Simulated scan of single mutants.
Amino acid sequence: MMAARWIRTGAVLLLGGATGFYHSIKLSLDQRTLAQADLGSDGSQVNLTLYQYDRCVACSQLRAFLDYYGIEYRTQHVKWSQYRSVPVLTIEGEDSLELNDASVIISAMKTCMIDRRRSLSEVISFYPLLTSNNFFGQEVTEFSNKYWVMLNEIAVESVYPSKNARKEEVRWRRWTDEWLLHLVSPNVFRTPSEALAAYGLIVQEGQFGPVEGVLVKYVGAVTMFLLSKLLKVWYRLQDDVREDLYSAVNEWVTAIGHRRKFMGGDEPNLADLSVFGVLRAIEGLQAFDDIMEKTKVKKWYLAMEKATEEHHGQSEALTSVKSQSASVS
């Protein structure tokens, strides 16, 4: 059971054992409200803080979403903190809200951007937390509907060019979390030298003291190198795990096709942002360089990078709101 727990943890996060365990955080929603219209438009009314570490894949996915839509937030680097899992997004205004599942946060925020009549805490209730037992008999939790932007039929027609486009977005967001994300750790920590290089960046980008930095780098690198071998077996990867990563990335590019710039068409959709967040988390590492060289993803990635840096989503969100208002009237 302990091995299984480590496997799940390492598969979801790029960082591993050397960063320590975190105490659990509760999802507190009762009587906590926030007008989504304030997000990204009036920083004086609402403050967003993202508790994260730079090389956490899920954190990178959430940052990609916030950056693309130009939503202002500040980051708080997590080391030996009270949080067991990241990202954790805290929203402070007249009331406060804490959320800690990247896909749910993205879906809920996107819903509120389109349907301004709903508060974020109200929308969060559309993603109930379900409990079940896994293969090992352990209790696990999962959010229902987490990949769906929760809209009425009028809004769906105004935002998505077709019903297939909405289903395609959901499918590839799920694919990203259930497959592409799990290829990260086996590839980033594939060899001892790659593991050391990865943790060298983690220490460089984090706020570690000299002694603590050495401990994190070497203990973390050894831990994750060994864990990557378990993950290779667990996910039945090829002897050279890089081949699985190449195949997954090329599968994504093939799904976009030659006629579209992004999965979302002229502008990225949530699936684009999800995949981009995963790949951006490993930028600067050997696995990333190999992907850029040996797959067909570079053109798309550079276009995503530009769209995110320029906050293209700000104008897209405004268009969605106007379109929704016109449809309702």
Rank of each mutant, 00 (worst) to 15 (best):
Q76R: 15
D38S: 12
Q286K: 09
V184A: 02
G16C: 12
D272W: 00
Y83K: 04
M1C: 08
I71W: 01
V78T: 10
I71R: 01
L201W: 11
T90I: 12
R117G: 15
S44K: 12
V86K: 00
N152K: 05
V123C: 12
Y301G: 00
T308E: 00
N100P: 02
G70E: 05
T49A: 07
R84H: 10
I282Q: 04
E293R: 14
T223N: 13
V140S: 01
L120V: 03
G16F: 03
K232W: 09
N269G: 06
E283T: 09
L15A: 08
D239C: 12
F189T: 01
V86Y: 01
Y160Q: 02
R8T: 10
V46W: 00
T308L: 00
E283R: 08
A198D: 02
V328T: 10
A37S: 13
K146R: 14
G70N: 04
T131C: 06
M292Q: 15
L270S: 08
D240G: 10
G220M: 00
L318G: 02
G284N: 01
G40S: 13
D266K: 09
L89V: 14
F225M: 07
G93L: 06
L245R: 02
L97Y: 07
S323K: 15
D115W: 03
R166G: 08
F189V: 08
D54H: 10
K217L: 07
E168Y: 04
W80I: 08
T223G: 11
D101C: 01
I25G: 05
M113H: 10
V86R: 00
W172R: 11
W179Q: 06
E122D: 14
R173K: 15
P268V: 08
E169H: 03
P192L: 08
L99D: 02
S274Y: 08
V216P: 02
V241L: 07
G40R: 03
L227W: 09
Y160N: 05
I202W: 04
K306H: 07
K146L: 08
K26G: 09
W6V: 06
R74K: 10
E122Y: 06
T111L: 00
M224I: 02
A18M: 04
L273W: 05
G206K: 06
L285W: 04
S121T: 13
F65D: 01
K232G: 14
L245G: 03
N269A: 05
